[in-house]
Simulated assay, not measured.
Amino acid sequence: MIRPAREAWQRVRWETATVGGSVRRAFTGPGPERDLAVQSLKAAGAAILAWAVAGWWWKAPLALMAPWTAVALVQSTVYRSVRTGLQQVVLIAAGTVVAAAAVGLTGDTMAAMALALPVTVLLGNYPRFGDQGLYASTTALFVLVYGAYTGFDILHRLLETLLGAVIGIGVNALILPPVHLRDARDSLCRLPREGADLLRTIADEIRHGHDRGQAQEWHRRARRLTGRLAALRDARTWTRESLRFNPALRIRRQAPPELPSTEWDAAWERVVDHLTSLTALLAEAAGERPRFAPPPDDVLADVPPLLYALADVCETDCAALSRPAGPAPDRRDRDEAMDRAWEAHHRLKARLAEEAGRDGETATSVGGLTAETRQLLHDLENARVH
């Protein structure tokens, strides 16, 4: 009992610290946490406004429909608000009509539920409606439970829904309309920043003597970079969607800086593939029982300068991606780092020629090392930020 209680307490502490960190970041600077807080406050404000109009001023018979719709339509993008609003209007209208028809046919609430709910649940599962499908069946339940079946009641349901949709979409579009460009730029920066950190770690630990466990950790970190690529693809999709129907673009005096083309993503996908292969090779050639002969120490001594230079290239790219809109940065530092990387690779290639004449087994590992680092060099050249 003591161990589960301790683990549960640790989870609670970790969750509390995570929530506290998110709250602190929301107050201290722009970022995903602040964006989420703004969207949450907008949703709450839209629901209050919808209730004030429908319930307090209009005194609608089922005023709940207006704030219920409004709070759901403050979505992550203006385009998604419009699309979701159309879906909800269709589903709520369908749920209302089906429920009223079921009562007209049966004359009994219980029998009407048995008739209406299977139809509305099936309608809600239509793929085109996505996550909004639940509104058809829940609207039918509201109508049946509240006993609002007449043509006047149906008209009110539709008007209340339309009111909530207009308020929700209007609040999302006119009050700090969401733009996900910052999320995409942050995802872009993460790849070269984390790539540079990994390259420096590998170089440092090779210089001081690494073991198999360290090499396996390099491989795990390289594989985690594929998750950054997936996050970047998602962020680009959200950015494209957030720019549709967004009035903020007309309000801004200066257009936001453009993102690099998707060719940059493809180049980094190849960088991650070769970095993963390189770390796998180093892991398999390390330890007391390596799967193949490890590179000689004098060959490994030529690897850190190459990796340090590649890390410098990644860091200059990260700095270029982080810059505000304006003229292109001076890329002489990147060119100088690439030159140093190629010089170090030429030394490594010369070592391969020497090892080929001495020991075929070590030549295999040195050849793999030379090939993978060469591919890294070519791919990082193609990943230049313009």
Score class of each variant (00 low, 15 high):
1 M>N: 12
2 I>H: 15
3 R>T: 08
5 A>D: 13
5 A>H: 11
6 R>S: 03
6 R>T: 07
11 R>I: 10
11 R>F: 09
15 E>R: 15
20 G>C: 05
20 G>I: 05
22 S>G: 11
23 V>T: 09
25 R>W: 05
25 R>G: 03
27 F>M: 09
27 F>E: 05
28 T>K: 13
31 G>C: 09
33 E>N: 11
35 D>W: 03
40 S>I: 14
43 A>T: 05
45 G>D: 03
48 I>R: 00
50 A>L: 00
51 W>C: 00
53 V>K: 02
53 V>S: 03
57 W>A: 10
63 A>W: 03
63 A>E: 07
65 M>G: 01
67 P>G: 02
71 V>A: 03
77 T>R: 01
78 V>M: 07
85 G>N: 12
86 L>A: 15
92 I>D: 05
94 A>C: 10
101 A>M: 08
105 L>F: 12
110 M>I: 10
111 A>K: 12
114 A>Y: 06
120 T>E: 06
128 R>D: 08
130 G>Q: 07
130 G>T: 07
139 T>K: 08
145 V>A: 01
150 T>P: 04
155 L>V: 14
157 R>S: 03
160 E>R: 06
161 T>L: 01
167 I>Q: 06
168 G>C: 12
173 A>D: 04
177 P>W: 04
178 P>K: 04
179 V>F: 07
180 H>E: 10
183 D>C: 05
183 D>Y: 09
185 R>D: 08
186 D>M: 13
187 S>Q: 15
193 R>T: 15
195 G>F: 10
196 A>D: 02
197 D>V: 13
204 D>K: 14
204 D>M: 11
205 E>L: 05
205 E>A: 03
210 H>D: 00
210 H>C: 00
212 R>C: 01
214 Q>W: 02
215 A>I: 00
222 A>L: 07
233 R>I: 04
237 T>G: 01
239 T>A: 02
240 R>V: 08
240 R>Y: 04
253 R>T: 05
253 R>V: 03
254 Q>C: 03
255 A>D: 13
255 A>V: 11
267 A>R: 13
271 V>D: 05
274 H>K: 04
275 L>V: 13
277 S>V: 02
277 S>R: 02
278 L>S: 01
279 T>M: 01
279 T>W: 01
280 A>R: 13
282 L>Y: 06
282 L>T: 06
283 A>M: 05
284 E>R: 09
286 A>N: 05
286 A>Q: 05
296 P>K: 05
296 P>M: 04
297 D>H: 02
300 L>G: 02
302 D>M: 05
303 V>L: 10
303 V>K: 01
307 L>D: 09
309 A>M: 12
320 A>T: 15
321 L>E: 04
331 R>V: 13
332 R>H: 14
334 R>P: 09
334 R>H: 15
335 D>I: 15
335 D>K: 12
336 E>D: 12
337 A>D: 14
338 M>V: 14
344 A>T: 13
348 L>M: 10
353 A>V: 12
365 S>I: 15
366 V>T: 12
369 L>C: 02
369 L>K: 02
372 E>C: 12
374 R>K: 07
376 L>M: 13
378 H>C: 09
385 V>K: 08
